[in-house]
């Protein structure tokens, strides 16, 4: 049992989520899990499903608070519950399972269609990137990440991957990115567009 819990206000939760405060994320995560858990296990879900849905719910919330001018028009709990419910219903429908839906009377629900749809579009895009990176394989995936995410220089990459010089590394990176681009967009590589 956690004792001496710091109590945060909803505004503090939202601000903390926006700024990436780990402690607040932690507290927020713990605070609302049970309500989602209860809902999912009451509606044909397992504990694992509850965990997945809850984490996706927190991601939707996280995405939304990053939006400029984000304002919550209901209680945080209501918002979280509504998102979780929508995500879970979609999943149940997708798996075309028959299920007994026991709505919790005490829990208010708000319309989150827009937020969830926006999230799903994003999620699909990111999922595609994950797939493309997986197909790309090694050393390409790491090389690409090192350059575009870690911002390593070509010299550092040459050293790390054992290329003779930065130009070689750059050629490798070029080839890798072409492949990634092709698989991600499923389009012709940009090279076919006129060269300078």
């Amino acid at each position: 049992m956690s004792k001496n819990k710091v109590q945060y206000t909803e505004d503090q939760f939202i601000d903390g989520l926006r700024t990436g405060d780990n402690e607040i994320l932690n507290a927020l995560y713990k605070k609302y899990y049970n309500i989602v858990l209860k809902f999912i296990v009451n509606n044909s879900g397992s504990q694992e499903a509850a965990q997945d849905i809850y984490q996706e719910t927190i991601i939707v919330l996280y995405e939304n608070v990053q939006k400029p001018g984000f304002e919550l028009n209901c209680q945080l709990q209501t918002y979280i519950y509504s998102i979780a419910k929508r995500l879970w219903l979609k999943q149940l429908k997708k798996n075309s399972k028959t299920f007994l839906f026991k709505d919790d009377d005490e829990n208010e629900v708000v319309d989150v269609t827009e937020d969830v749809t926006a999230h799903e579009t994003k999620e699909a895009e990111l999922e595609k990137m994950n797939q493309s990176l997986a197909e790309l394989g090694e050393p390409c995936a790491t090389l690409i990440k090192d350059f575009y995410i870690q911002k390593l220089s070509m010299d550092e990459i040459a050293e790390k991957f054992g290329y003779t010089n930065a130009d070689n590394a750059k050629n490798q990176k070029y080839k890798c990115l072409q492949r990634l681009k092709k698989s991600f967009f499923e389009l012709l590589p940009v090279e076919q567009i006129e060269r300078k």
Partner: peptide, 8 residues
């Protein structure tokens, strides 16, 4: 592409 990589 680069932006998606980073967001991912």
């Amino acid at each position: 592409l680069v932006d998606t990589l980073n967001r991912n």
